[in-house]
Amino acid sequence: MKTWQGLSLALAALGPCGAAHADVPPPPPQPPAEDAAASRSATFQAVEGASAEDVPGGPLLVSAYAVVLVLLVGYVVWLARLQAGTARELARLRAAVERAPEARGPSAE
């Protein structure tokens, strides 16, 4: 019996407290902890102050055009060297063919 009386007293004491809590507006909902990609897909927020771009386009553009230039010029230079090497080999072969009859002597012809 004493237990029921104790519980009643405790509830009576908490009652005003609960009423006081009911008057306070609920706290704003906290955004759930999530990764950047999920956040981007769920909310759109205005930038505060002057808008500034996160990723500067200039260096990316310069890098792209530099890559195109370097790859194309590099390939042309490599191709020119390949041609020069083939021409050298051809000259060496031609010299060997021209020397061959002399080395073998008149009887070889």
Partner: peptide, 19 residues
Amino acid sequence: VGLLFCAIVLITGPLWARK
């Protein structure tokens, strides 16, 4: 030559995609 241009595509594309 196709591979050369493929390399250009695969390098310049990501530079655009970053932005």
